[in-house]
Design a binder for these strands. Sequence first.
DNA 1: TCGCTAATGTACGAAACGGTACATACATTG
DNA 2: CAATGTATGTACCGTTTCGTACATTAGCGA
Lengths: 207, 207
Amino acid sequence: MVQSRDAERTRSELLDVATEVFSEQGYSGARVDEIAERTRTTKRMIYYYFGGKEGLFLAVLEAAYRRIRDLEQSLHAGDLEPVDAIRRIAELTFDHHVDHPDFIRLVSVENIHRGRHLEKVESLRELGAPAASVLDEVLARGRASGELRADVDAIDVHMMISAYCVFQVANSATFGFLFGRDMLAPDVRERHRRILGDIVVGWLTAD
Amino acid sequence: MVQSRDAERTRSELLDVATEVFSEQGYSGARVDEIAERTRTTKRMIYYYFGGKEGLFLAVLEAAYRRIRDLEQSLHAGDLEPVDAIRRIAELTFDHHVDHPDFIRLVSVENIHRGRHLEKVESLRELGAPAASVLDEVLARGRASGELRADVDAIDVHMMISAYCVFQVANSATFGFLFGRDMLAPDVRERHRRILGDIVVGWLTAD
DNA sequence: TCGCTAATGTACGAAACGGTACATACATTG
DNA sequence: CAATGTATGTACCGTTTCGTACATTAGCGA
């Protein structure tokens, strides 16, 4: 093969494939050889660019979180009324999770390992701030107008929304099996999306 | 060592230790040798009783789910008013998850593998029924009295509660890291517990 | 065009790992 | 108390798997 050299392409292809494999098989389950085989390059390059399996995983995590952060920053609902804004944020977050199952699975994998790898990527500390600040602004407006309850903060709300969205993707296999509900079916998805909005609005507007 | 033979003890000790190791390291990350070393018996016994690593994992999953099922069956709130009953169920479920982090982690591991193992344990199919039926009864009463909304079913409610509880345990490492909130701290736990009750009640009693 | 370095490919090694063959001791039952 | 099957221990095997030593090629600047 007369493929010209392209360091950047090699690097990013490894990262893409590794994201897939790690999210499919977990950290220990992922095989360095398999990752290499699925690319147009060889295992040697993993060691050249990332130093090894762990370095590759760290790079995958970092890239995944950055992608998510960018998406969250584009999540603005500033021109809506507080109640509508809250529902909108919940729905967008929901869509966003549905669209990025790889990321959710990767986070699960990292949690199995108790965040051991994530802690090594110092650059990701407090990456949650953007998502929280959008909510913070809406909550403040809602509190001022008396429409939204005052005993919760942005992180509480974000956690509730994340929990619902993450669960729906990350636990679809076991929950679906145990309750005979196909979590991937479009109509079920749609139902859950609506329900999430109802939950958040019902909760935050209760006296 | 002059330890007398006790098949049952050997078996259950292997199961206990395996539960720990699998939930700490994941399926692929768990080492058969390590599991054996942590018990008073040898690796040989894993093959004798469970056939191999996968058989052991299946047994661990089955035992864990059965334990949970039993606890869920003891969850009765029949003598409370619907609204109070709902809050009580949510709180008990919450405590229950907090007390069994191993189980939650095991479920995460199984979901990484897309429920491949769980499907092999035929005896666990539709194990969710008990949990749903308790909720079902309360929802029916609440609908009848007009106190609870009618557009959701027991599985919807159970999923919401599970999502919150599972997230709080399963994602504590990454969420805690990203938002600088120590999810294991008692006061944070207490706050989340109260919030879960507020969420469920607020949602289900909204017009 | 001539090096020189970044980038890539090949082949292999050492340790980890799941699994098993074989030997043996205990306990129960007739 | 002998006999028999259950339970257990030891030592080892074949693969897999991460990692690396060594060779080689492509392209860029002098």
